[in-house]
Each structure stands twice: as structure tokens, then as C-alpha cells.
Amino acid sequence: MLKLINKAQKGNDRAFLELFQHYEQEIYRMAFVYVKNQNDALDVVQETAYRSFKAIKDLKEPKYFKTWLIRIAISCSLDILRKRKKVIPLKPEFDEFIPAAVDEDLVSAISLKDLIEGLQEEEKSVILLKFYQGLTLKEISEMLHIPLGTAKTTLYRGLNKLRKIMEGDEANEQ
């Protein structure tokens, strides 16, 4: 992997394509959660490939290649949403409930639809990075350039929203 990164940093597009293709499916799926449709998610993948290949020569720490790539993909997703005016600015809410630990029952019951429809972009970022990419909150805060406290708050706010959605679903079912 490091050899491929090294080649890509010297401008070898084939090496970069090989690298990129390791992650393109993950990038596509993450993008889909943000942009909610196939065409836009494909645009995100193409734009991520474009931006990352142009910038890879400046990547200082090849071991963080994937993290770096995912950050570009998130940035591309948010840019596409901004361009298409689909972003609703986040209105900070009072953190009425911040649990000490993640509610495992809740997380295990979350559906794709809830993730896509129920969360704002910041919350999607933290939840995707935490549960899809397996990053720690500290890594997430570094990746998104936000304070650790903000990462925690955003995570729990997102989970709380999902809980409410699911409680509503259950009530409707009854």
C-alpha cells in the first residue's frame, strides 16, 4: 500500500487508481448517506478522485491515506449539498440528554432510512466516522477539526434524534 502511495505521489495515475478503488465503494456509500441519491453520490466519488489525486503529492503521512481520503469525500459531499442548496443550516439544540455511553440497543436497531433522513450533515459525519469507519471520538474531532466536546455532543445529539424517530415509529406501529 505504501509503495502504491509513493508511486501515486510521483504522479502515477495507475497506482492511484488501484489505491482509490480499494475505497471507492465505502466513499460511494458514505456519500449516498449525505446526498441521498445515486447520481450525486457518483459525482462525489468522481470529485473525490479528482481532488485527492491532485493533492496526493502533498500528503505528508501516507499511513493516514484512508483517513485523508474520507475527509475529502465528506468535504465533497457537503460541497455538493451546498451547491444544490439542500443544506439546512444546523440549529444548535440544547443537549437535553447526553448519556455517558452509547446506547447499544439503539445503535443496533438503527435503519439506513433513519440515518439518511433523520440526521443533519454534522451528525451524519460523526456517526458515519464512528460506526462505519470505526474511528474514535478523538480521531473524529481531529479529522473534522472540531473540539472533542463538540464531537461528543454531536454524536449523542444524533443518536438522541434517532432514538426519538424509532420511538415514534414504535408508537405508530402500536
Binding site: D13, L17, F20, Q25, L42, R51, F53, K54, L112
Partner: peptide, 18 residues
């Protein structure tokens, strides 16, 4: 989330443009 058949083509296009 299903992966569309053209995914790799789009990756290539981005890289080719760069």
C-alpha cells in the same frame, strides 16, 4: 446501499481529469 456498475468508471474519470 447498492453499488452502481459505473462506480469505477467515475473514479477513473476523476483521476483522468486531474
Amino acid at each position: 446501499i447498492e453499488i452502481p456498475a459505473e462506480l469505477s468508471t467515475r473514479s477513473k474519470k476523476g483521476i483522468e481529469r486531474a
